[in-house]
Write a protein that binds this DNA or RNA. Sequence first.
DNA 1: ATGGTTTTTACTGCGTC
DNA 2: GACGCGGTAAAAACCAT
Length: 330
Amino acid sequence: MTDQRTTREAERESGEDEEQETEESAERERQQVCPECGGSLLEDEEHGETVCSECGLVVEEDGIDRGPEWRAFDSREQDQKSRVGAPTTNMMHDKGLSTNIGWQDKDAYGNSLSGRQRRKMQRLRKWNERFRTRNSKERNLKQALGEIERMASALGLPENVRETASVIYRRALGEDLLPGRSIEGVATSALYAAARQANTPRSLDEVASVSRVGRDEIARTYRYVARELELEVAPTDPASYVPRFCSELGLTEEVERRSRELLGAAADAGITSGKSPVGLAAAAVYAAALLANERVTQSEVSEVASISEVTIRNRYHEILEAGGETGVEA
DNA sequence: ATGGTTTTTACTGCGTC
DNA sequence: GACGCGGTAAAAACCAT
């Protein structure tokens, strides 16, 4: 120990080269000795640091945490997140490999069971049945979650939306809302609802464009699911479309801010009710860009908002009228 | 199913680059 | 002359009843 320190210090004084330095630090790490005071080092796995027990010097940060990188809150999530799950469970149900417990309370020799044994078998039967039915739902769920994942990524929706969509889907599954409806349709509806709830809405058309089912079915299923699950989905706030439109059109924050002002003024003037939120947002963005002298054409806006130019024209006249009276002017 | 409202489609005229 | 914009009429879509 003392020898090592002295030789190291000697090296340092005699002008070390780079290679020697890195080699030396690697050695230090291996030997678990603090470079400052020579005390022994402790690994703090939770913070991913290696710390000196004597002087508290942090030798190494961002170490490798060898624990799981996720947490599972229930068994379903554990299944979903596990990276070692065998695919055989998927096949079991279909291949008839699952266990069946006979209903006769007889043992292998045909003798009747004692009351104690009978009760035990009843419990086993119950749980076996629970797990079996759960398995079929599980497979259903996997497919749906895959779809949600795919569509969310195609629509550029963030993690939390996928999370919410999954939760909604599971609830639908749990409440037996699936029979008579396609997995696709319900999955899409869940995603649509989740996007709205997270204030990053996508229009029905946008959602339909990445889904395997048509818009009408999505709308129908969505209504049904939303009603059955009593999802509280507030009418979409037009302002929640603004950031996306602005960024897709390459407009500045200034435009974004003004768009919100205009929408606020329009809401106060009471001209927003009954109008499509997308149309209002698109019109506000267009108007705001005009006021801020940033060049955008109506057709460009209609493109990103997937709304007709006519609607933009109609709305933005109304908006400017309302905005002008409320003090937002050019 | 129906009627009222909103949005879309399609077309036309006007001004500008 | 193409393009952006505005307006209009009729059709389609939407929504509550």
